[in-house]
Computed example of a mutant assay.
Amino acid sequence: MNLQQLHILDAIVHSDSLQQAAQKLHKTQPALSMALKKLQQDCGFALLDRSQYRLQLTPAGQRFYLQAQQVLQQSHQLKSLARYLSTGAEPSLRLAFDEAVNLSEYLPVIAAAQQAYPQTELQLSCDYRLKALEKLQAQQADLAISPWNDVFIGLGDFESVAVGRFELVCVASPELLSRLDAPLTQHTQLASLPQLVADSDALSFDAGALLPLQSPHRVKVNNSLCMKQALLAHLGWGMVARYQVRAELESGRLMQLHPTEFPRFIGGEVHLVRHRHVLPGPVADSIWQQLATGT
């Protein structure tokens, strides 16, 4: 059996007679009869009941036709996909986000691209502490949205554009701080408390080195959700994106640390990044243009 036979069966089911089906398909009635006979021979059972005034599917024919409809629908989708891909649109697009970036600020642009190019499969990943850039460097991502420093230019043949800002704050729970002998005023007091640090060696960059103090008591975490839960469980103090703990800071479940000689926050630009010499497809280019221009 073949797709043409299934199309003929579909036309017959949706017609009042073989003659009407033949007219729809621009074929002769004998040609349809021959195609139907051949299909029934291939199946080994009768598809249509000819005892009534109008052709009806047999019980076995009804089950066969239900499956045939799925095959015809898949064939239509495959043809549509082939036409789409022939225009040069990407079959898939990999976007890597750093967890320090507030994803919700960029999702509307991605949703617009999804509606404009529905056949392109979007693959989104959220990665901890510069893993998104490492994925881009290893060509495991097509676009990355990540905290940016000019030194990263030397890590890969990158092209980037500023699309926002990020802010990391050092926080701890009141319960953890209550273990100190005195109220927290000097950053050296934190050395007596466990520190939560990112377990990430992406791009050989140690985010913990940004702080003026490293506690000898460390707990490593491999993502921001684990970091936040560990903070709330009083396992240590650590650095986290402000947007991720805004509600907890407002409720008092977590407190931002302000000892002397300690940064109030660590922040900078968020960049959209791609390989300089890789020609982007229309979906990647659409996202780039919208985020770069803010339109």
Score class of each variant (00 low, 15 high):
K220C: 11
R246Y: 01
A202C: 03
E248K: 03
A209V: 12
C226K: 15
L232A: 05
A209G: 12
D199Q: 13
L249R: 06
K228F: 02
Q229H: 14
K228Y: 01
A241G: 12
H217I: 15
V219W: 01
Q244L: 15
L196R: 10
V245Y: 00
L232T: 07
L235R: 15
Y243A: 04
A198M: 08
R218S: 08
D199A: 14
K228N: 05
E250P: 00
D199C: 06
N222K: 14
A247T: 11
D206I: 11
K228G: 04
Q214W: 08
L232D: 01
V245E: 00
M239L: 14
N222T: 14
D201F: 10
L231D: 05
A241H: 03
A247Y: 01
A230C: 12
L196K: 10
Q214F: 09
F205T: 13
L249A: 04
V219F: 08
L211V: 11
L203G: 08
D199V: 06
Q214G: 10
Q214Y: 07
E248L: 05
L235C: 13
F205W: 12
A207N: 07
V197D: 00
M239H: 02
A230L: 05
G236T: 12
L235S: 11
W237R: 03
L231V: 11
D199I: 05
R242G: 02
P212T: 09
V219C: 09
S204I: 10
A207E: 10
G238N: 07
P216F: 08
R246S: 12
S215V: 10
A241W: 01
G236H: 09
N223R: 07
S204K: 11
P212Y: 05
V240K: 02
L231P: 12
S224G: 14
R246H: 10
L213E: 01
E250W: 00
A241T: 09
G236W: 03
K220R: 15
E250Q: 13
A207C: 10
L196E: 04
G238Y: 01
E248Q: 11
L213K: 09
Y243W: 14
L232W: 04
S215M: 07
S215E: 02
N222F: 11
S200L: 04
A241K: 06
P212L: 05
A198T: 08
D199S: 11
D201K: 14
P216L: 06
P212A: 08
M239G: 03
L211E: 02
P212I: 09
L203E: 05
P212M: 07
A241C: 08
A209P: 05
R218L: 14
S200P: 04
S200Q: 04
R242C: 05
D199M: 04
Q214M: 13
P216H: 09
H217F: 12
L203T: 11
E248R: 03
L213Q: 09
G208I: 09
H217A: 12
E248V: 02
G238M: 02
G208Y: 01
A233G: 08
S215L: 04
V240C: 01
D201S: 14
M227R: 06
S215H: 07
A241L: 06
